[in-house]
């Protein structure tokens, strides 16, 4: 077996340069669609039609953003995307809060108050994370109709809480599993009950996992399309469904600049969350993917 010789200094430098070029090339690849969207959302329609999608705007206009936000025709009235943005917020805030709270409690019970059969229950919840939602669409539509929640934001909140439970439970379970049992035992010895142990001992150190869970749930629920398209009506439509209606509507002139402004508006909340707390976002993705 021949041993590889140490590369000389010049080759090493060249390799380094190549490495950086490749990495920067990929950065361009990932940024390009966002760049195209942003640049074309501030051009006039004429400039888009006649021009190059890569070129910077000759005339800078903020009009498409205003149209997308408050004037574009989506439902019956030309309201723009703003009411749907608000719908999404009205849906996301309670859904994230409830599913996170339930997940925390479930994780607490499943790790610190174990009982026979708890692993089976956890397994059942875990599998629920992965089901294709097509399997629940038909009965869900009927149940929402029966309980009078069809086409409402509260109906969507219910749906997102139910199908988010698996993940929130998983996150908290894994986090609390690593929490020393001795502390819990000591608290129990001191006479602290179920709730006291939770609020005084576990909750104060749950900050990171709460952030991870909230970000995960927020991103997933905000970005959901299938449930919104299936169970919402014109008044409760979330942002993603409204955006799709705007972009794919076949009537009238296609106002690409408005479409892009709308797409960026729909992406903005999750992007902001990601930029502000990207570290946690990554951790959430990992926690969802790699168990243990």
């Amino acid at each position: 077996m021949s041993r590889s010789t140490q590369p000389s200094f010049g080759i090493e430098k060249l390799l380094r340069a190549a490495l950086y070029s490749v990495l920067i090339l990929f950065a361009v690849y990932y940024l390009l669609p966002l760049f195209v969207m942003l640049v074309n959302s501030v051009k006039t329609l004429d400039e888009i039609r006649g021009g190059n999608m890569m070129s910077l705007p000759e005339v800078f206009t903020f009009e498409p953003w205003l149209v997308a936000w408050s004037k574009a025709q989506i439902g019956v009235e030309p309201t723009g995307l703003s009411p749907y943005f608000i719908n999404s917020i009205m849906m996301v805030v309670p859904a994230v809060t409830i599913s996170t709270a339930l997940g925390a409690l479930n994780g607490y019970v499943l790790t610190k108050w174990r009982f026979p059969g708890d692993k089976i229950i956890f397994g059942l919840m875990l599998f629920a994370c992965f089901i294709p939602f097509q399997i629940v669409l038909i009965p869900m539509a009927r149940v929402l109709g029966i309980i009078g929640m069809a086409g409402t934001t509260s109906g969507l909140v219910l749906v997102h809480v139910v199908y988010g439970l698996g993940f929130t439970t998983l996150f908290f379970r894994n986090y609390y599993a690593a929490f020393p049992d001795e502390l819990i035992k000591a608290a129990k010895m001191d006479g602290a009950g179920f709730w006291r142990t939770f609020t005084r001992i576990l909750l104060p150190s749950s900050g990171p996992i709460i952030v991870v869970t909230v970000i995960w749930q927020f991103t997933n629920i905000w970005n959901d399309f299938l449930f919104g398209a299936s169970f919402a009506d014109f008044d409760s439509m979330p942002m993603t469904v409204a955006l799709n209606n705007l972009v794919s509507s076949s009537t009238g002139v296609k106002e690409y600049n408005v479409h892009f402004a709308g797409a960026v508006l729909a992406a903005l909340p999750t992007l902001v969350v990601y930029v502000v707390s990207g570290r946690y976002f990554v951790r959430g993705l990992m926690a969802g993917a790699v168990k243990g």
Binding site: N223, A263, Y274
Partner: peptide
Amino acid sequence: PIYLYPMALSFIVTGTAWKWF
């Protein structure tokens, strides 16, 4: 973060951008 940010987007946004591209 540049490599990762697309994961934060909705598939509807991704689809809109790429349909055009």
